[in-house]
């Protein structure tokens, strides 16, 4: 049987818990966007490489297209920073 004194939370405990939730949220934001970027770049990168293998002029265009999904992870980074600070 848990006594009533154990259920009391101190302000320090609440602050620590909030900080933990913030850190987990920031981690979710950055990891999910990171994964999404990886999935997007995986397909685009393979296709870009295929196109560049046949036509060298397409290399620059392929590089730009491959880098575009980086914006997703940048959004995630911004959200993570906003959560933390």
């Amino acid at each position: 049987m848990v006594g009533p004194e154990t259920a009391v939370m101190t302000v320090e405990m609440i602050e620590a818990s909030q900080l933990g939730t913030q850190a987990i949220s920031a981690a979710i934001a950055i990891s999910l966007t990171g994964l999404s970027t990886a999935i997007a770049e995986y397909g685009i990168g393979s296709a870009a490489l295929g196109a560049a293998a046949e036509n060298r002029d397409l290399f620059g265009m392929g590089l730009v297209l491959t880098a575009i999904p980086e914006t997703i992870v940048i959004f995630g980074l911004i959200v993570a920073l906003l959560i933390l600070f």
């Binding site: 296709a47 295929g50 293998a53």
Partner: peptide, 9 residues
């Protein structure tokens, strides 16, 4: 994806 894009090119 690589091969199919190559053949498309």
């Amino acid at each position: 994806i690589y091969v199919c894009t190559r053949l498309r090119a």
